[in-house]
Nucleic acid binder design. Sequence first.
DNA 1: CTCATTAGTAAGTCGTGACTTACGGTAAGT
DNA 2: ACTTACCGTAAGTCACGACTTACTAATGAG
Lengths: 110, 110
Amino acid sequence: MANAYSTIDALAALGDPTRRAIFERLSAKPSAVGELARGLPVSRPAVSQHLRVLKQAGLVRELPVGTRRIYRLDPRGIAAMRDWLDAHWAAALDAFKDFADTQADQEMPS
Amino acid sequence: MANAYSTIDALAALGDPTRRAIFERLSAKPSAVGELARGLPVSRPAVSQHLRVLKQAGLVRELPVGTRRIYRLDPRGIAAMRDWLDAHWAAALDAFKDFADTQADQEMPS
DNA sequence: CTCATTAGTAAGTCGTGACTTACGGTAAGT
DNA sequence: ACTTACCGTAAGTCACGACTTACTAATGAG
């Protein structure tokens, strides 16, 4: 089943600051692993491991070109996260409305 | 400065699975700490600590009622995350377009 | 056919943070 | 005033994961 753009994995992946940095750099420009590592305070293998996590989370796609692997963001993973956020945002608004009504009922029973 | 609805903190906060569970329960219904803990596989102090992180991330608001503290989601924190995602999503699309053009130029120089 | 460049993997270290139990503090009920 | 219920904080433990330094593999150039 590998990855199905599950928001769960995406949020866990972006929980790490280094992965967020990689994510932001890729949003500005698709890049190879070494290129990313040169602009970050971690080693190249570390970047490689982070990219694997991001890929499994459905946030990143890779395409090999020669001996290099160009990584770019996967809009589908981002869209899945946004849908998840929107759903809970809407649910929270509804739930708070019900909650407020209940409170009002308790304080003004009639 | 406390919290300013920074997406950075919000993503880090939702990176933890227990905090995501709390977040989802609060989206369905504002709840007190003990009520949340009763439905989760962790102790009440653990829930308390998670709620503090969520609050500092701008994702949650609390209102004291008697000896209890009712927690509910803060739409502003969610909106900040969504804006961040949308910005990077748009940037990624533009960057990929430029990237594709560059690739085409390199393969068909004229 | 080397040699150089790029990148993923293995193995091991180490700090962080997610948990626990114990405690103190506040509000409501009797 | 005493008890009960609810909650945050302190302190300490422990596992996980984010790093590192090897090593191996694959592609391109000379």
